[in-house]
Structure formats: C-alpha cells, structure tokens
C-alpha cells in the first residue's frame, strides 16, 4: 500500500485540482440556476483565458499582469456574447441554448487554432514560484501550492459574497424564483449578465492557473467543460455548495485514480459521474 507521504501528496494535489475546479464550475452552475442555460462554451472561456494569459506573459513579461488582464478581457467578451447571442434565447427550450453554446464553442476553438495555431504551450511562472516547498515532511511543488491557496481564497471570497452581501442575497433569491425577483423591481437582465460575466472571468482565471500548472493546448476547452459538467452534475446544478462538493469529489478521484488505477485514469471521471447520477439523478445537493 502507498506510504503516508504518497497519500498526502495525492491529497494535496487532489485539493489543488478541486480548488481550480470550483472556479471553473461555479459560473456554469450559477448561470444554470438563474436562467436554466447549460453553457457548453464555458470551457472555451477557460481556454481563451489560458491562451490570452500566455500571450500576455510573453508581451509583458509579468505573470501577474496576465493573471489579472486575461480574465478581464474574457469577461468583456463574455458580456458581449451574452447580450448578443444568449439573451434572445432565454425562456425557450433549453435545447436551443445548448445548441447555441455548442456552436459557439466550435467557433472559439477554431478561433484559437487560427490565432495561436495548434501548438501546446506553457505559461511561464515567476521564478520564486518554481521549485518545491516542504509541508508536513513532503516536498510539494510551490506553484501547485500557490494554485491551491489562491483558488481557495477566491472561492472563499465568492462564497462570502454570495452568502453575506446584498447582491449575493439577490442572486440566491434568483436561484429560487427569478420572476419573483423581477417583481421586486430588480433589474434581472443586469443580474444575469453580471453572473455570466463573473463566471466567465473565474473560468479564465482557472484557465490561466491550470495552463501554468499543466499545459495550454487546443483540446483544453473540452477537458475543462467535461470536468466542469461532471462537477455540477455530481453536486447538483444551480448550487454553489454543490459545485464545491462536486469539485472535491472529482479532484480527489482524479488524483488518487491516477495513482491507484493508472490504466483506468480516463474512466474514473465517467464512472464517478454515472454512479452518482444513477444513485441520485438530481445530484448530491438540492438547494440554492
């Protein structure tokens, strides 16, 4: 059996993946919660963020500038996309939105191929984040620890924002009953756009940090959207808490799965998702 050090390394890596997954999946989950749209192009936001981040690091030489600017650019793009394409389709059969976002993801992935080519690139990280740190007697890559702490802080901030702020209260009300929120005189269109924009920005942040941790490639959008879909389906669509729980399950399953069952690593995601859906067809968490 694996030694405690190996277990601890896997656990930390699982938590690292999970914290990044929270960033990418919460936007997907919340936008479904308030307008019932499953945004298939959500993974594209992550990929666009990663490629933009790469170009920005190359242009400015600063990882931090990329981490800040790339999500802002993606957010601006997402606002335009939501206004022009998704807004006319709210309230229609969800299929049309799935179809639209599927088509948009096709457009984005080909755009990436045209602009950046099909090459796999990696985002350079600051020198002080390379190397290893020792925690509890094991050597853990510094950058992974940074991803864990940074993403967990962002997720915690988002959780506090949704749970404690006045805007968060409006969002939580919207997850229950959007019409009622509108009846109270709140501009729900602006709310939807804001949730969409923040979700896209967080996905781009996740894209940058994951792109720096692993690599940036043209299939990244599919990897990101499948992980995010599995997470929200496990956790239950439309719930931030569910996204967190789903991320923890998938993150640890991925890191331990790769260690314990190397031949089956690709199957782990699908086995976990099918098993949980069969056991609880509506996901683990059923709240807002």
């Amino acid at each position: 059996m694996a030694s405690p050090e190996v277990l601890l390394t896997n656990l930390l890596y699982g938590l690292t993946i999970a914290s990044a997954l929270v960033l990418i999946s919460s936007g997907l989950s919340l936008i479904f919660g308030i307008v019932g749209v499953v945004n298939f192009a959500h993974g594209s936001f992550g990929m666009l963020g990663a490629y933009l981040g790469f170009s920005l690091v190359m242009a400015t030489g600063s990882f931090w500038a990329a981490l800040l600017l790339a999500p802002l650019i993606v957010t601006a793009g997402a606002i335009v996309m939501e206004r022009l394409t998704l807004r006319p389709l709210y309230g229609l059969n969800p299929l049309y939105q799935l179809f639209l976002t599927f088509a948009l993801s096709l457009v984005f992935s080909n755009l990436v191929l045209l602009v950046w080519g099909g090459d796999t690139v990696s985002i350079p990280t600051p020198s002080y984040l390379r190397g290893f740190v020792s925690i509890f007697g094991i050597a853990y890559p510094t950058f992974r620890l940074f991803v864990l702490v940074f993403s967990a802080c962002l997720a915690a901030a988002l959780w506090l924002f949704i749970g404690r702020s006045a805007w968060g209260a409006v969002l939580r009300a919207g997850l229950h009953n959007m019409e009622m929120v509108e009846a109270f005189g709140i501009n729900t269109r602006a709310l939807v756009t804001a949730v969409f924009a923040v979700g896209a920005g967080l996905a781009a942040v996740a894209g940058v940090v994951m792109g720096a941790m692993r690599s940036v490639n043209p299939e990244m959008d599919l990897d990101l959207i499948t992980s995010a879909l599995v997470v929200v389906v496990i956790g239950g669509l439309g719930s931030f808490r569910g996204a967190v729980i789903g991320s923890l399950i998938l993150g640890t399953a991925e890191s331990f799965g790769a260690q314990l069952l190397p031949g089956l690593a690709k199957f782990v995601v699908w086995i976990v998702m099918a098993a949980i859906l069969l056991w609880r067809p509506e996901g683990l968490v059923k709240d807002a």
Binding site: L98, T226, L229, V233, L237, P281
Partner: peptide, 28 residues
C-alpha cells in the same frame, strides 16, 4: 435501462457520460 430514470438535462449528461465511457473503452 440505466438512463431513462433521469430526464431533461440530466438525461443529456447521463447519455454523454456513457458515450464518453464507450469512447475511452474502444480507444484502449
């Protein structure tokens, strides 16, 4: 038999999950 217990978007994902499973199986 396994998928039809779910509806709407959950049915979509369940069939997607089985298909991905089959894809990886055939690939290996």
């Amino acid at each position: 038999f396994l998928s039809i217990r779910a509806r709407e978007i959950y049915f979509v994902f369940l069939t997607f999950a089985f298909a991905q499973f089959a894809y990886h199986a055939v690939n290996s």
